[in-house]
Simulated assay, not measured.
Amino acid sequence: MTDAEQPATIRLEVARYRPEQDSEPVFQGYDVPLMDDWAVLDGLAYVKDRLDGSLSFRWSCRMGICGSCGMNVNGEPRLTCGSFLAEYGDGPIRIEPLKGFPVIRDLVVDIDDFLDKLSSVRPWLIREGEEPPLTAEYAQTPEQLDAYKQYSMCVNCMLCYSACPVYVLDPDFLGPAAIALAQRYNLDSRDMGDRFDVLNLDEAVWGCVFVGDCTRVCPKHVDPAEAIQRYKLTAALRSVLPWSRR
């Protein structure tokens, strides 16, 4: 095969961190086939399958639904299953773990803090005075569904956390996805809960400086920045009208 017949390749510069041998992350280069229909995730899979089986990263559905393949691609938080090699010209493409999270190995980050933040907003329908099992139906109008549907589209990919300058500097910040999730239930006509104690804090909505990068990088157009600003208004009104809960 002549040089002209050689398949085109693109170089991936992948952050490697193996705690048993590395004191800090290092970058390792791999050349992978440059296919028009290959996502960055396909390139990483090629590396693991053909070039270096020790590479560690998370993935599951490959369809932008599970949210598990989020990484920093050329400095931008992206779902690697939805970022295509052809988008990056001749390369190289630098792939790193999401910022703001402890790195376990290579591109795998520790998500325990993120999960704790999600659970802290009580992300379930709260029905006061009712004990499970709940057998009654609570019908909603299309307008009632539309009130919270946008915030229900989150896939917990954590891209918004990696893009958020507040969370990267202050890990105690509740963060965009958790606040948007709280709003998903606050605006649900079936919910009777009160999340004011979790959201009306300096480490929650008042910690947000409204840069808006969380919304910009969200692959599902959830708009967590809007969710935060809306609850700031709710919290401010409640300080004047304390009996108002929504």
Rank of each mutant, 00 (worst) to 15 (best):
G89Q: 04
G67C: 06
G91N: 14
P77A: 07
A45M: 09
W59A: 11
L79G: 04
L79W: 02
F57M: 08
V40L: 13
N74H: 12
V26Q: 05
D36F: 08
F27I: 13
S83F: 00
A86T: 13
M63V: 10
Y46Q: 03
G64R: 01
V26D: 01
G67H: 05
L41G: 08
S60P: 02
A45F: 02
N74G: 15
S54V: 04
F84L: 14
C81V: 07
E76M: 11
S60I: 00
L34C: 03
M63E: 14
D22E: 12
G82D: 12
L55T: 07
I65M: 15
G89H: 08
C61T: 05
L51S: 02
R50W: 08
G53L: 07
L51W: 02
R58Y: 00
L51E: 08
L44A: 00
Q28R: 14
V32A: 09
S56G: 08
Q28C: 02
R18E: 15
L55V: 12
P33H: 09
G70N: 09
V40K: 03
V32Y: 09
R18A: 06
G67N: 07
L85I: 07
S60K: 04
S23T: 12
D31R: 07
D42R: 10
R94H: 05
K99Q: 15
D49H: 07
D36Y: 14
P33V: 03
P77L: 01
S83M: 00
S56F: 04
I65D: 02
V47C: 04
Q28A: 03
D36G: 04
I65S: 03
V47F: 05
E76S: 11
I93Y: 05
G43A: 10
E87H: 07
D52W: 13
E87R: 07
N74L: 13
W59V: 01
G82M: 03
S23C: 00
R18N: 10
Y88R: 01
P92F: 09
G91Y: 14
T80G: 02
M71T: 12
K99A: 15
C66S: 12
F27D: 11
P19W: 10
N72W: 00
G43Q: 03
S83I: 01
R50V: 06
I65W: 09
S56I: 00
S54Y: 05
C61I: 01
V26M: 11
F27L: 13
L51G: 04
W59C: 14
I93N: 08
R58Q: 09
L55S: 04
G91L: 11
L34Y: 10
L41Y: 02
F57R: 03
S83V: 01
R78H: 11
V26N: 00
Y30S: 11
L41W: 02
E87K: 05
E87L: 01
D36E: 15
S23W: 00
M63G: 14
W38D: 07
G53P: 13
Q28Y: 05
S68V: 08
L41P: 06
D31E: 15
S83H: 01
E76V: 07
E20R: 12
W38A: 10
L55I: 07
G29W: 08
K99H: 06
E87P: 03
M71W: 02
N74M: 07
F27V: 12
S23H: 09
G89W: 06
I65K: 06
